[in-house]
Write a protein that binds this DNA or RNA. Structure first.
Lengths: 189, 189
DNA sequence: TCCAAGGTATACCGATCGGTTTACCTCGAT
DNA sequence: ATCGAGGTAAACCGATCGGTATACCTTGGA
C-alpha cells in the first residue's frame, strides 16, 4: 500500500489537526494553535502543507482512509450475506471510538461553504465511496434492486449517525440496523 | 400566538443573520458583516441581542419555528393515517426552498462545540420536537410499537437530508419515504 | 567535505475578530 | 415640554486570524 510518506513533524501536525478540527470545528481552530500543540513551527507547517485549506483537505483524506480500514476490517469477519448489516456494526464501533461529535464529513460540509475549497472533494469522495461500497455488498448478498436497497442503507447509516451523536436516540444505530435487516429480508431474491 | 416582538432593526438583523449563518457557516460570519448587511450599527445589534452567541441561539430558534410551521401546514392537508409519510413531503419541499446546504441544526452542531453555548439548547429542542411529533403521528396512525417506528422514521428523515444535500443521492427523500411506507405497512395494527 | 532537506526561533504583516464607548439624533407617549 | 427608547456614526480595544520573512541550526547522504 502506498501510504503517504510524511516527515515526523508533518505527521504530528496531521495528528493534532485531526483531533482539533474534529473536536472544536475547522474554522474555530487556528494554524498557530495546531503548530504549537504539535511542537512545530508555523513555517514548518506551511512548508509541509502550503495552506490551512490544504491541511484541512489532508485531514479529511486521512480520516477517510482510517474509516475505510475500520470498515474493511469489520467486513472481513463475516460472510457475503451478512456484510451489508456489518456496516452498521462498523458504524457503531466507529462512533464509540472516534466519532462522538458526528460524521466529520457532514461537519466539514457545514463549515466549508466555498464551492472550490479543496476539502470539498474529500467530502464527496468519502460519501461516494460509502454508497458504492454498499452497492457492492448488497449486490454480493443477492438482492433485488440492489441500487435502491444500497441507497436505503446509506440513508439509514447517515441518519443513525446524526440521531446517535445528537443525543436524541442513543440506540439509533441498532434501530437502523433492524430496519436494514427488514429491508434486506424483503428484497431477498 | 405570542410572536416575539422585535424592533424593525432587530428584525432585519435576524433576517440577515439567518441567511448568512446558514449559507456561509456560523463561525465564518462576523457580526460586523451582519450589521452592515442589515443596515444597522454594531451597537444596535449588541443592544438588541447582547452577544453573537445569543444571536446565534435566536437564529436557530427562529428557524425551528419556521420549520414547525411548514410541517404543520403540510400535515393539515392529510388525514391521520397518512401524516407520518407527509413528514417526508414536508422535508422535500423544505429542502428545495430553504435547506440546500443541509440541516441548519446538524450544521450548527458541527460548529458549536462548547457544551454551554446557548445555541446548543435550540439544537436539542428542535431534534426532540421532531422525534416527539413523529411519535404522536405514528401513534395516531395506529401502529404497533410506535416509539420504535417513530425512531426509524426520524433516522430516515435525517439520513435523507444528509444524502440529499450532500449531492450523493438527489432522490434520497423519495427513497426514504418508500422505506418509511414499508415500515409503516409492516407495523400496521 | 559539503550541501540540501528539514527543522527552530522569532518577528512581522494587514485584516478581521467580538465587543465597548462616546456623542449625538429622532420620535412618540406622558 | 420632556424624557426615554431606539437608533446612527465612528473611533477604539486587545486578541487572533492566515500567512510570510529572516537568520540560524542539525543531519544524512553523494
Amino acid at each position: 500500500m502506498a501510504t503517504k510518506t510524511l516527515t515526523p513533524a508533518a505527521e504530528r501536525v496531521l495528528d493534532v489537526a485531526g483531533k482539533l478540527f474534529y473536536e472544536r470545528g475547522i474554522t474555530a481552530v487556528g494554524v498557530e494553535g495546531i503548530a504549537a500543540a504539535a511542537g512545530v513551527t508555523k513555517k514548518t507547517l506551511y512548508d509541509r502543507f502550503g495552506s490551512k485549506a490544504q491541511l484541512v483537505a489532508e485531514y479529511l483524506r486521512r480520516r477517510d482512509r482510517r474509516y475505510r480500514e475500520h470498515v474493511e476490517q469489520t467486513l472481513a469477519r463475516g460472510r457475503k450475506a451478512d456484510r451489508p448489516l456489518l456496516m452498521f456494526d462498523a458504524l457503531q464501533s466507529w462512533i464509540e471510538r472516534e466519532n462522538p461529535r458526528g460524521c466529520a464529513f457532514v461537519n466539514a460540509n457545514a463549515e466549508l461553504a466555498e464551492p472550490d475549497h479543496p476539502g470539498r472533494a474529500a467530502i464527496a469522495e468519502q460519501k461516494q465511496w460509502q454508497l458504492e461500497r454498499l452497492r457492492q455488498l448488497v449486490d454480493e448478498a443477492g438482492v433485488r434492486r440492489p441500487a435502491a436497497v444500497a441507497e436505503t442503507l446509506f440513508i439509514l447509516l447517515e441518519g443513525a449517525t446524526v440521531a446517535s451523536t445528537l443525543g436524541v436516540a442513543e440506540k439509533a444505530v441498532r434501530t437502523a440496523r433492524r430496519t436494514a435487516a427488514a429491508v434486506l429480508a424483503q428484497a431477498k431474491r
